[in-house]
């Protein structure tokens, strides 16, 4: 089991919408090359799990009801520079986009994206990070 886990992309999923979270987690778990290491429902949990599980990729909707989503992203960014961050949110406006740019987050997706496309984007983001590191 450990052996097969090794080659997988370790994903932390953070979304405070229960149905979206549940469905996304199920979808990701179906992919043989993904491993969902934690699913979080708020900002504080997300920071804790990032610390604890050391995922390779964070898939997050930073527009959270606790209002701390962007701050969380900033902190995660600072604490774990190697972590690939992919934002998946319902609506992106200019102001939000500028926040992402400042944080150096290049992968911003909007909800409503086809699942196949979402999976492809996650793989591409991860691959890009690997190739930059090597």
């Amino acid at each position: 089991m450990e052996q097969t886990q090794a080659g997988r992309i370790r994903i932390l999923l953070a979304d405070d919408h229960p149905h979206v979270r549940e469905q996304l987690a199920a979808r990701l778990k179906r992919e043989p090359d993904f491993s969902v290491v934690a699913v979080t429902t708020n900002s504080v949990q997300t920071i804790q799990e990032a610390q604890l599980r050391r995922p390779a990729l964070l898939l997050m909707d930073p527009i959270m009801r606790d209002g701390l989503g962007l701050a969380t992203l900033r902190q995660v960014r600072a604490n774990f520079p190697e972590l690939v961050i992919v934002v998946l949110t319902a609506f992106v406006d200019t102001a939000l986009n500028m926040h992402f740019q400042q944080m150096g987050i290049r992968h911003v997706l909007t909800k409503g994206i086809a699942s196949s496309k979402l999976l492809a984007e996650l793989r591409a983001a991860y691959a890009l990070q690997r190739s930059n590191r090597d």
Partner: peptide, 22 residues
């Protein structure tokens, strides 16, 4: 109104889409 659409409608529709996908 925009926030409501964000928090409510878009998320819910997206979740239904994911369920169909499942």
């Amino acid at each position: 109104f925009g926030m409501d659409l964000h928090d409510g409608v878009i998320q819910s529709i997206y979740a239904v889409g994911l369920m169909l996908d499942d």
